[in-house]
Amino acid sequence: MEDLGRQAAYWDGAGSTKTFTHPVQISWLSGIGRAARILDYGCGYGRVMAELVEHGFLDVSGVDLSAALIDRGRLLRPDLKLAVLESPPVVPCVSGSFDVVVLFAVLTCIPDDDAQRALVAELRRILASGGLLYVSDVLLQDDERNRNRYAAFAERFGTPYGVFSTDDGAVCRHHDISHLRSLLSDFDLVDEHQIDVATMNGHPARAVQLLVRKP
């Protein structure tokens, strides 16, 4: 199987055409100054970045491993600061460079436990003390279609329950909420709530958003 921590070929192909839908709860950033340094990790074509800029944030940048998605974003919004991430999860900046990091529907694209932990550790490194990490991701679904594909994939590949393959070739992961809380256990929880979203292939799904702070 392809490296489950990256899947760059998928995101430069079929994945580069997807529409992403997780909503931004701007009220969660109400205490953040408009000059705060914000990074959207896994920014795709810059949808969330554009929303943040439209709400007055002045220093918003984004990185993504997919050159195709970054190219799409530059065409749609040439005013955005978008860059290709050459060696994910490493962000080429000094420690403490950002006040806020946004991580929307990224963990679902990184099914491997070790790769998820490495990413969260890197984001903790680049956050300033007291900085916020805003995570939005997909929970385990309880419908028969999803339960069947979780079980089939776990039996075939020995991956964590919740990992599955989409019809067009992505390997994704839906998460038990306890796993996400454990992954973020080095941060202080500020807020958490569940939401309904559409997946990148248009299916309804239950998701969760977590706002955590670096001590």
Rank of each mutant, 00 (worst) to 15 (best):
E54N: 13
G56A: 10
G56R: 15
L58T: 14
V63P: 02
S66W: 02
A68W: 01
L69S: 04
R72P: 10
R72T: 06
R72M: 06
R72H: 09
L75T: 13
L76Y: 07
R77I: 00
P78A: 01
V84W: 04
P88I: 01
P88F: 03
V90W: 06
V91F: 07
C93T: 14
G96D: 13
S97L: 08
V102P: 00
F104C: 05
L107M: 11
C109Q: 14
I110P: 00
P111T: 08
D112R: 13
D114Q: 12
A115V: 06
A115R: 13
Q116M: 12
Q116F: 03
V120G: 01
V120I: 15
L123S: 05
R125H: 12
L133K: 03
S136I: 04
S136N: 08
S136C: 06
D137K: 14
D137S: 06
Q141R: 11
R147E: 15
A151P: 08
A151R: 13
A151T: 08
A154K: 12
E155A: 15
R156F: 06
F157M: 04
G162D: 09
D167E: 15
D167R: 15
V171Y: 02
C172F: 10
C172D: 06
H175I: 01
I177K: 10
I177V: 14
I177H: 03
I177M: 04
L180S: 02
L180W: 04
R181F: 02
S182D: 14
D186W: 04
F187W: 11
D188V: 02
Q194A: 09
D196M: 13
V197G: 07
A198S: 15
M200L: 12
M200C: 09
